[in-house]
Amino acid sequence: MDSTRVVALSQDMPFSQTLMDRLYAAIEPDTIIPFDPKDRGSRSAALRDAEIAIIAGDTLEDDVLEAPKLRWVHCDHAGLNRSARPEVFAKGLIVTGAAGRSAPALAEHAMMFCLVLSSGFTLFQDAQRRHEWFRGPELDQLGALYGKTMGIVGLGHTGCELAKRAKAFGMTVLGYRRRRAERPPGVDVVFCADEGQGIYELLEKSDCVVLAITLSDATHHLINAEAFARMKPSAFIINLARGEVIDRDALIAALETKQIAGAGLDVTDPEPLPVGDQLWDTPGVLITPHFSAPVADRRDRSVDIIIENLARYKAGQDLINGLTPEDIWTPDNRG
């Protein structure tokens, strides 16, 4: 590997001058070519000689894949399913992202859904609007999170942050991940795909099921009618992943027939959710618009990830947050 490289750097990175100075210092002594992502000529000129490209979005255009010398692309975006194209792996391109920068906030968002659903908060909110001191029979079905079981599907950055918070609430925590690894803090039992274990035992035992897994061909409609049939009638499902991880028709049916007690959705299928979509009025659903309150140092954390990977790349080490063939997502091939 050459001692100096060409780094194509998109000019729409959402960083302060102080953070950009940090980034430039980490790239040096390599050559930096800033480019306007909206100007095809500027993009082409920068990508022609680049070994590394740092971009703001989550989609790799064809000109990126066709860049002759490009070896690594970093996308300043957490979810990279739009970039997980078969052509990326055929080319042997390294693609990394910003997963983990908002993990604490996402974990809080999941806990918010769990607390609201388990406490029946919407019942009290509706009663307050009616100016009513509500103590109806519906309250007999509620219960604190303490002593209950949370099942986390996906033990990446967000899943691990969530496990610590659920444990702090006195919950038993089950986790599901692709490969066996050291058990994360706060997780009591881990189920692993590479050991032939599925998610059904986790679903059967959990009072709150949280999806924090990437969208791929393997996880598309992972939660389907069979999955809902395995869940407790009193259980909730929380989706922080992508809408397509859940079969929406199966979700609506499970909620309408009270096969499960409720759902907290920060992501939907489709997205944005159309005004007249059935999900808006499905009983037991809470919806947020793919938004969680940001952590104060989110952009600092983004730059930290890039700098860490720059050091690893220069040292010939594996990069963090890299896409793998298991992440391939080919929605165009679906009927």
Results as ranks from 00 to 15, higher is better:
Arg183Asn: 06
Thr324Asn: 00
Leu23Arg: 01
Thr149Val: 06
Arg71Glu: 14
Asp58Gln: 10
Pro331Lys: 09
Leu286Ala: 02
Ala241Phe: 07
Ala50Tyr: 08
Gly262Cys: 12
Gly156Thr: 00
Leu222Trp: 09
Ile252Gly: 07
Ala235Thr: 08
Gln317Thr: 07
Gly120Cys: 04
Leu211Gly: 13
Leu202Ala: 11
Ile223Asn: 04
Asp21Ser: 13
Gly147Met: 03
Asp140Thr: 02
Trp133Asp: 08
Lys232Gln: 10
Cys160Met: 13
Glu195Asp: 15
Gly97Cys: 07
Pro68Val: 14
Thr268Lys: 14
Gln141Gly: 05
Leu106Arg: 03
Gly151Leu: 12
Ala193Phe: 14
Leu222Arg: 12
Ala168Glu: 02
Ile55Val: 15
Gln11His: 04
Glu61Lys: 14
Phe228Asn: 12
Glu66Ser: 12
Asp62Val: 03
His290Cys: 11
Asn81Ala: 13
Ile152Met: 07
Thr122Ala: 10
Glu204Val: 00
Lys91His: 13
Met13Phe: 05
Val303Phe: 01
Ala45Met: 05
Thr59Gln: 11
Ala144Ile: 05
Asn321Ala: 07
Leu323Met: 14
Lys314Val: 11
Leu155Pro: 09
Asp126Gly: 08
Arg242Asp: 09
Thr172Cys: 03
Ile199Val: 10
Val190Leu: 09
Arg165Leu: 12
Val295Asn: 04
Tyr313Ser: 01
Thr31Gly: 03
Asp269Trp: 02
Arg177Met: 04
Gln11Ala: 11
Met111Val: 09
Asp297Ser: 02
Ala227Asp: 05
Leu323Cys: 08
Gly264Trp: 11
Ala181Arg: 15
Gly92Thr: 08
Leu265Glu: 05
Ala263Ser: 08
Leu139Val: 14
Leu70Ile: 04
Ser234Tyr: 05
Glu108Ser: 09
Phe121Met: 11
Val209Trp: 08
Ser10Lys: 06
Arg178Lys: 10
Tyr200Arg: 13
Ala110Thr: 10
Ile33Val: 15
His131Val: 07
Asn224Lys: 01
Ile305Pro: 01
Glu244Gly: 10
Ile33Ala: 11
Ala8Arg: 00
Leu265Ala: 01
Asn81Glu: 15
Ala53Val: 06
Glu326Asp: 15
Gly97Asn: 07
Ile27Ser: 06
Thr158Gly: 02
Glu195Arg: 13
Ala250Tyr: 05
Leu93Asp: 05
Asp249Cys: 06
Leu203Trp: 09
Thr172Ser: 01
His221Lys: 00
Gly151Ser: 11
Leu115Ile: 15
Met231Glu: 04
Asp63Thr: 04
Ala296Met: 03
Ala229Thr: 01
Val295Gly: 02
Val187Met: 10
Ala78Gln: 08
Asp21Arg: 09
